[in-house]
Amino acid sequence: MFEIAQEQPEDVWEVEALYDLCFAPGREALSSYRLRDGVDRVPELSLTARDPDKILAGAIRFWPVRVGDSPALLLGPIAVHPTRQGEGLGGILMQASLSRTAELGWPRVMLVGDYPYYSRFGFEKLTGVEMPPPTNPDRVLGIGDWEGIQGDVHKWEGPAD
């Protein structure tokens, strides 16, 4: 059993340590991090999962971006501690957060990841959506209302006009 909760300010360093553990050194050099730099994550969707001993087992974050002129969410990173992988925690975090995106006013979510894994949550390959290089376009996935949405993904600059 895991306790799923909104990430709190006091969780930041523990969550960052989890991401450092789960991802390769230099993770912050990826193009997705350039889209996050200086932008606040969406707090209502950035979640932690703790085991009964209150040890951090997983975390997920979401960031606002623009695709062309349209708002979207960029999911990631999502990580599960290596000792807790295979217990379904990644799926629990995905469902807990994705179930709230539309009610919070975000009609579409994108990520850069492996289609075979994320397709089970409903993600499809996006065409006409260009992440900053050097992103493999086959790994750009989305869920939600993407009809007619195309263009470059760029940093969030605030609400739509």
Rank of each mutant, 00 (worst) to 15 (best):
P159Y: 06
W146C: 02
V140I: 14
G68W: 05
R100F: 09
F62G: 03
P71D: 11
Y117N: 10
Q85C: 03
I60D: 01
N136S: 14
F121V: 01
L104Q: 07
L56Q: 01
A29P: 15
Y117F: 12
T127P: 13
P52D: 02
D152V: 12
G86M: 03
E3C: 07
L75G: 11
G86C: 06
F2R: 08
F121I: 03
L75A: 11
I55S: 12
S97R: 02
G26I: 00
L141E: 04
A29G: 12
P77R: 03
R100W: 04
V112P: 06
V153I: 10
D51Y: 03
A17Q: 09
V129I: 12
T135H: 12
Y117T: 06
T101W: 07
E14V: 03
I60R: 06
A59E: 02
I149A: 13
T135K: 02
W63N: 08
I55L: 12
I60K: 05
K155W: 00
Q95E: 14
R139W: 12
I149E: 11
E130S: 12
I149T: 14
G105Y: 09
L74W: 09
K155C: 00
V67Q: 08
E124V: 07
Q8L: 13
I60M: 06
M131H: 13
Q150R: 15
M94D: 05
E87R: 14
G88P: 04
N136Q: 11
S97W: 06
K54Q: 15
Q8H: 08
A49D: 05
I143W: 14
E10L: 13
P77S: 06
P43G: 13
E10C: 09
P107Y: 12
A96D: 06
V129T: 05
L56G: 01
F23A: 00
K54D: 09
G158K: 03
P52C: 00
A72G: 07
C22D: 03
Y33K: 02
L126M: 09
D11G: 04
L104K: 15
Q85L: 01
L111Y: 04
G68R: 08
R84T: 00
N136I: 08
M94T: 05
A72C: 02
V39G: 12
R27A: 07
H154M: 01
G151P: 10
W13Q: 15
E16P: 00
L18G: 07
Q150F: 15
A57K: 01
G68V: 02
F62D: 08
M1V: 01
P71H: 15
A160V: 10
E124H: 00
M110N: 08
D114E: 11
P132K: 08
W106N: 07
L93M: 00
H81K: 02
G38R: 10
Y19L: 08
P137K: 00
L75Q: 03
R61N: 10
V65G: 04
E147G: 14
P77F: 06
P116N: 10
E28T: 13
A72T: 10
S99Q: 01
P43A: 15
G144Q: 09
E130I: 13
